[in-house]
Design a protein around this nucleic acid. Structure first.
Lengths: 217, 217
DNA sequence: GGGCGTCGGAACGCAACCGTTTCGTCGTGA
DNA sequence: TCACGACGAAACGGTTGCGTTCCGACGCCC
């Protein structure tokens, strides 16, 4: 499941500080109930977006999920494990590599997907938060790095490689710099500047400019 | 005082969890003592880098600064006011606009300055943290936006304008997009990827590629 | 020279979480 | 049919920070 997918489901019940109506619904059996697990997962995303990793508490998660603390501790040993598990889960799903036949076309497609994911406030709230936390916690940093490598960065790498074999880029192109040029601007605009909406034609112009930059390497 | 300057001073005594030896040094007079104020300011930076805004506590700041909580509360009403004050103070000092006569040269100079500032771990730790917090707190967002406008973004804007009048860029250039192209990649590399060290020639190549991107707009 | 106000220190009551334990309930798989 | 174990709820003692209020010490400014 993608971040975006989580975000969509979340918008239905995010930001409810008060206790859920859910009343002691069904009780359990001798097996961890998947619906409870899922409720916790969703609650973590909501909580993460609402208060951030540092302020997030197990009690708060359980409260929001409408479950007992025990249900959480039965599954994860700590807040850290919980978040690492979620981030890793997101990292698993690889994005399909675009193949339009041209560098600019590939970039355009990548930007389309990326900007759609970043458009969800939840994603763009959680991302910088985990990113800041990563500066202090190597485990989070590693998980995030992995997620990035298998997502945005992986796709970008594929695009560069394809363009290189195609002859659109010089063979000696600095790949690391290329990835920075590709991923930087949209992240800056969406997450740092936090521009609410990208103007019409922005992604196209961005793709064109970036392609030009890469060819100048 | 710049972030970098703070960073330098900080490296001397950051990450000392234990109580300072400082023993009930001099007592005060009927005036706020500037050295105490400065000690608090420095402590806030250290604390911000060490634990982040969310986890930062007034008690922790006072402890680190070797002062009483009262000294802090006497100056600022809350953690938020304290941080806003600091961010604003940084925002005040404008960077000088580069003027090398060429777009690429100007960019190169800007990157030199920016990367030097971001090289300090303290700055690159504090930045994403405040940035994440800004997503939740409009006041912080505003302060950060202002600091950015008077810093990196302001300089970039000047560079674009100069290039435009010089004829290096087309008159109709999308300024917002131009700023994203200029600022995004280095931020991505330094703060998101957290690359410890930029390889030789990186900034030059980045400036060249970015200039090419801008000219393609 | 004296008073005002800051200094660090300590304590206040309050609140939130921590991680664990105990409890009665209850559904499911053997 | 029935025991196992997950369920929500509540409470445990401990820690941390909140924001405020005292306190005695001290020294700058009038």
């Amino acid at each position: 499941m993608t971040v975006a997918a989580y975000a969509v489901r979340m918008t239905t019940n995010a930001d409810e500080p008060q206790p859920r109506p859910r009343r002691r619904a069904p009780a359990g059996a001798a097996v961890l109930r998947e619906d409870v697990t899922e409720a916790i997962r969703a609650a973590v995303f909501e909580e993460l977006a609402a208060v951030g990793y540092a302020r997030m508490s197990i009690e708060g998660i359980a409260r929001r999920a409408g479950v007992g603390k025990t249900a959480v501790y039965r599954r994860w040993r700590s807040k850290l494990h919980l978040v690492l598990d979620l981030v890793s889960a997101i990292a698993v799903q690889g994005l399909p590599a675009p193949d339009t036949g041209s560098l600019e076309g590939d970039l355009r497609l990548l930007y389309e997907v990326t900007s759609r994911a970043l458009r969800h406030p939840v994603a763009s709230q959680i991302l910088p938060d985990l990113q800041a936390e990563a500066a202090r916690n190597p485990d989070i940093a590693e998980a995030l790095r992995k997620a990035l490598r298998e997502g945005q960065d992986g796709v970008a790498k594929g695009i560069v490689a394809a363009a290189e074999t195609r002859g659109d880029l010089r063979p000696g192109t600095d790949h690391a710099l290329a990835l920075d040029l590709i991923s930087g601007p949209l992240y800056w605009r969406s997450v740092v500047i936090r521009s609410p909406k990208l103007p019409k034609g922005y992604l196209g112009a961005l793709a064109r400019a970036t392609a030009a930059a890469l060819k100048a390497l």
